[in-house]
Design a protein around this nucleic acid. Structure first.
Lengths: 126, 126
DNA sequence: AATAGTGTTATATTCATCATATAACAGCAA
DNA sequence: TTGCTGTTATATGATGAATATAACACTATT
């Protein structure tokens, strides 16, 4: 369990936590079928409130990264609903690429950066 | 001036406005040296408060997309400080690519998507 | 000199969200 | 029964978003 929370960041704690868990899934730190710590447990580990963790878990459930039952808590179970996700990815990329274009970062540099991130982070590929 | 603000979005108005202007610069809708509308003028056009526009302009100034003087208001003047920007782009891409990886969107599909966005949006390339 | 247009600053208010706290409930397993 | 899950309810303090009114400093035009 490596979850880094920056208490000085202006990003909401529950969003940082959600993003860190998504990163954990992509890097196979959390495997399909594995349970995440309970909301109370993880709250104690990080040192934040139970409800903040619960908010992150609820969001992860809505977005289709985990499924929840009362026996095992939040279980990694990615449902690959590409239709919804691809539109979200497109919107995010549109803004990110607009920024880079304004700053004279080339299209080729973006392609290189994508490959660098994939290789350095070791994102799982089917 | 095509600026679309979604009043039902959960994204803050001043951030939407800032992103739309960055998109406008990247698509050469706003050219280097051109002035943006005054804060009061744009506020009237969109139908929001002057301070909300001012907040977006101040942020754009801090991020190096415009420079401001009292004669001509907010003038498009991109300073290409790549060092700072590249780190920001990397952080944003890390999370976006983690999401897509979880949803079984392949690396090749991302590369294709990047090219699609560049071509469809017509982002300026040096 | 006067007027009108810039961005900027100050102050205040309303509203929503974030993060916290305490408490209880329903379901499952040992 | 006991102890662990997620879930819900309610409340509170802090922060930020968006608004409103007002004024200030500077510049260009009349």
């Amino acid at each position: 369990m490596f979850i880094e929370i920056d208490f000085n960041s202006d990003e909401a704690l529950y969003l940082q936590l959600r993003n860190q868990i998504i990163l954990g899934i992509a890097t196979d730190q959390f495997h399909e079928g594995e349970s995440l710590p309970s909301v109370r447990n993880l709250a104690d580990i990080i040192g934040i409130n139970m409800h903040t963790v619960n908010k992150a878990y609820t969001l992860l459930k809505q977005e289709g990264y985990v499924k929840v039952d009362r026996r095992n808590g939040a279980v990694i179970a990615v449902d690959a609903n590409q239709a919804l996700t691809l539109e979200e990815i497109r919107r995010e990329l549109q803004v990110t690429l607009a920024k880079s274009s304004c700053k004279n970062i080339t299209r080729e540099e973006i392609h290189t950066l994508v490959d660098e991130i994939y290789d350095q982070m070791g994102y799982r590929e089917i």
